[in-house]
Nucleic acid binder design. Structure first.
Lengths: 132, 132
DNA sequence: TAATTATTGTTATATTATAACATTATGTAA
DNA sequence: TTACATAATGTTATAATATAACAATAATTA
């Protein structure tokens, strides 16, 4: 059973924007979108983003400095994320593949380090862009 | 046989700094280090960094906005990178594991996308920091 | 040698992110 | 229900990361 996290006002506003976007969105783009709702300062956005990442509602695409809503309803904590990124159109999709995550978790255990999480980003051309 | 890339003046200066550092180093820290050598502007650093990444002499740690010299002499083009990052002391080490890279390449091929490269970052505590 | 491409130099500016401090709201335990 | 602790908010200023635009020079190739 998923423990349902209750979001604060700002967290909810910012999560809604990210979820509606359906594509990665940048912090200052979020800021622009929420100014009509009274969120005026970057820090207000970044604080909400930090929290949302922490509880796994969103993920950060590190190579793009942008954020997406989590598509895997079960990944409450974003400790295992994988994305494919089109270098042409910048489309990003979250990969949820049990074998992959099992493999990477077992790989972690073999290593000397105590791992908490990982992030994997694949780059290439999506179907549409490879046709062109 | 490895084709040996000849570096330009700035590229060589900046690569030397990164290689000596033996730990990830940030662009503006590099800039500070090379000002005595006549490189004054951020763009001069970023241009060299871009090229060095492109030819695989260095890698970018995306989650840290920092750069390390490639430890795998064979990865001339950095199309398959993996790192483990200690969240306590920020130590970063490059993982070179044939099984892992084979697995990820085969995973790529199964997907609908034409992949060119990937970057994987594991986070946790290194041995030293887990003792504490 | 001319043409092309890669590299450099320079100034200004855009983009991404946090420090520091004050205040308000929410949750928790006596 | 009051006191205490913790989380969230608001605000100003500034730090850190990265690129645009333009001009000049060096290296490579036809």
């Amino acid at each position: 059973m998923d423990k349902q996290q209750i979001l604060s006002k700002n967290q909810q506003i910012i999560f809604d924007i990210i979820e509606k976007a359906k594509e990665p969105i940048k912090a200052y783009s979020i800021l622009f979108n929420v100014q009509k709702k009274g969120i005026k300062a970057p820090l207000q956005v970044y604080r909400a983003l930090d929290k949302l990442v922490e509880i796994g509602k969103i993920h950060k695409i590190e190579s793009r400095n942008s954020f997406v809503a989590c598509k895997n309803s079960n990944c409450q904590i974003s400790k295992a994320t994988a994305f494919s990124i089109c270098e042409s159109c910048e489309e990003v999709s979250e990969i949820s593949d049990n074998k992959l995550s099992k493999y990477l978790k077992s790989f972690q255990n073999k290593a000397g380090m105590k791992f908490k999480k990982y992030n994997l980003e694949f780059f290439g051309l999506c179907k549409k862009c490879s046709i062109k």
